Amino acid sequence: MNKLIPIFLLISLAGCSNNNLENSSEINFNENAKLSKMAQENNAMPRDPLVEVIDANEIELHESAYLLDSVMADLTGDDIEEEILLYISPSPFDEETGEAIYWEDLHLWQVIVKNGEKTYPLYNYDLGGKLSFWVTPEKQLLLVQDAVHLVVYEFTYVDGIFERKALIDSGITFKRSVVEW
């Protein structure tokens, strides 16, 4: 009899977890159905869940933000160049000597696109590594996050917003060559 009680409890708990899983998948199914219905009503396709939408928004620059790079390029397809700005806080250079500072901790990296009066904060995160970007002939911005793991983001302008999608995300710590050419 004593052995039956733990077995009964185990079966009861397993039954409870199955009910919870069934309910949660029902909720997810219902939410997905609602989203699909809303998209159909608005003549819009449901968005890819792996794509993050970035709308025009004001961004606050840290007082010690250092403009690391600035590029003009047409990302919106309107034949007018937008300004792409890459900031880092704090500055990577010593204010007195101008020499590079070696970092071992996180720093705030910001990538901002200015399109007339609109500002799009494409990247605004602390990172223990570095960022670099390229603009493709297809008017996309590729951003490489080189830190504990490698991530390559693709930013595409669509109907007044930028869409961000991770093309590569190593998700693990990796080793790389650090040889300077």
Results as ranks from 00 to 15, higher is better:
Tyr125Pro: 00
Tyr123Cys: 05
Ser12Phe: 15
Glu58Thr: 11
Asn28Gln: 14
Ala14Tyr: 03
Arg164His: 00
Asn18Ile: 14
Asp159Phe: 08
Asn28Gly: 07
Trp134Thr: 13
Gly77Trp: 02
Ala33Tyr: 07
Pro90Asp: 07
Gly171Asn: 02
Thr156Glu: 10
Tyr66Glu: 03
Val178Trp: 07
Leu141Lys: 02
Tyr102Ile: 10
Val144Ser: 15
Gly129His: 00
Asn32Leu: 09
Thr76Glu: 02
Ile7Val: 12
Asp79Glu: 09
Trp181Ser: 14
Thr136Ala: 02
Glu22Asn: 09
Tyr157Thr: 06
Pro92Gln: 08
Glu180Thr: 14
Gly15Val: 13
Val111His: 01
Leu122Ser: 04
Leu61Thr: 00
Gly15Ile: 13
Gln145Ala: 05
Tyr125Asn: 13
Ala73Asn: 08
Asn20Met: 11
Asn2Asp: 12
Asn20His: 10
Leu106Pro: 02
Ile27Asn: 05
Leu167Phe: 01
Gly77Lys: 03
Ile112Ala: 00
Ala39Pro: 04
Glu104Ala: 11
Arg47Lys: 05
Pro137Asn: 08
Phe29Ser: 15
Asp159Gly: 10
Pro6Asn: 05
Ser36Asn: 15
Glu82Asp: 14
Lys165Cys: 03
Asp69Tyr: 07
Ile54Tyr: 02
Arg164Thr: 01
Leu108Glu: 01
Met1Trp: 10
Glu58His: 10
Asp169Ala: 05
Gly171Asp: 02
Asn2Pro: 11
Glu138Tyr: 07
Ala14Ser: 13
Met72Tyr: 10
Ile11Val: 13
Ile7Met: 10
Ile172Lys: 03
Tyr66Asp: 01
Val158Asn: 13
Met72Pro: 06
Glu52Gln: 09
Leu35His: 03
Ser89Lys: 01
Ile11Thr: 09
